[in-house]
């Protein structure tokens, strides 16, 4: 078990390194130049001044040397400074990470709160009205783009009912209720398609388990339906559910970029988008590193969850 985890972790770190190398090369090889972007196309900066700027940023060095410097800094916990504001990237990331983290965790929680009871109910009442309704809702939830669902929610809950603000962010430390209010719609919009996907897998996975012999035994000895489902069947139905959620967290992290943009939330996704638009290399690299690391971490966590849920994995 331990060596299995160690192996997974090593693979994950390798993937992460690959991603960073890819992004590092990508932002530098694609046409467009940070210096031109900073001073403006029609500015009066002389070629010599531009060269000076490039040297200041270390952009005149060979690309492998640049990567070496950046990677060396990374190992010491230094992600460089923004080319535009000169603020350390790490400081900005630390300010913005809580927003994205809150958004993702809330979305995940909302998805589970919707998906698990609905999936269980659908599986228990296979073919009946509640199953049909839940399945239809799930199909629509998967098909509708999250940014459109976000806009629908804004239309209904902000503009018509005036329950939540249509955009903007409130710090939790300043106004906890306002913070929750400002995060509710974004989290719901982001979690909606995850809820749909999770509900479908809870339903189908539970259906499969409910056909097994030991469930028939449990029913035969007179256990209540509720106890059969939650104490006996659910644990065995969990593995595919955890897999799907693990896979979907990647989409969730990607989705934060657009959702943060729509609701004006100052998170990592929007930070990355701003960095990309301004060709602020250290900002893009830092933001991408955090997102990719989060994704890789979730995948390792999923492996740990397998081991916790299923003893067979643990003793392999």
């Amino acid at each position: 078990m331990f060596s299995f985890l160690l192996q997974r972790l090593a693979l994950a770190l390798f993937s992460l390194f690959g991603v960073m190398l890819l992004v590092f090369l990508m932002v530098r090889l694609v046409p467009g130049d940070v210096v031109t972007n900073l001073v403006g196309l029609d500015s009066s900066a002389t070629p010599a001044q531009r060269e000076e700027l490039r040297r200041l940023f270390g952009l005149d060095l060979p690309i492998h040397v640049q990567f070496g410097q950046w990677f060396g800094g990374l190992l010491q916990g230094n992600l460089g400074s923004s080319l535009r504001t000169d603020r350390p990237v790490l400081t900005d990331l630390a300010l913005r990470l809580p927003v994205t983290l809150q958004l993702t965790v809330f979305a995940l929680l909302i998805a589970l709160i919707i998906a698990v009871p609905l999936g269980v109910a659908a599986a228990q009442n296979r073919g009946k009205t509640i199953d049909t309704i839940a399945s239809l809702l799930a199909l629509l939830g998967i098909a509708a783009p999250s940014f459109w669902i976000a806009i629908l929610f804004v239309l209904v809950f902000s503009l018509q009912l005036r329950w939540f603000p249509p955009s903007g962010y409130t710090l939790f430390s300043e106004d906890p209720i306002g913070n929750l209010k400002s995060m509710f719609l974004p989290s719901l919009a982001l979690g909606f398609s995850l809820a749909a996907a999770t509900m479908r897998i809870v339903r189908s996975s539970l259906l499969e388990v409910l056909l097994l012999d030991y469930i028939r035994t449990a029913k035969a000895k007179g256990l209540a339906a509720r106890a059969v489902v939650y104490q006996h069947a659910f644990r065995n139905a969990l593995i595919p559910v955890v897999t799907v959620i693990g896979l979907q967290v990647g989409n969730l992290l990607g989705g934060t970029v657009i959702i943060e943009q729509i609701f004006g939330l100052p998170g990592i996704g929007r930070f990355a988008l701003e960095g990309i638009n301004l060709r602020d290399y250290p900002v893009v690299q830092g933001a991408v590193l955090v997102v990719a690391a989060g994704f890789v971490l979730v995948n390792v966590l999923v492996d740990v969850m397998y081991a916790l849920i299923d003893p067979r994995v643990r003793f392999e």
Partner: peptide
């Protein structure tokens, strides 16, 4: 190992 949307945004933005 990388969220698809973010990869696409990064590629396209550049």
């Amino acid at each position: 190992a990388f969220p698809a949307v973010l990869l696409a945004i990064a590629l396209l933005a550049f």
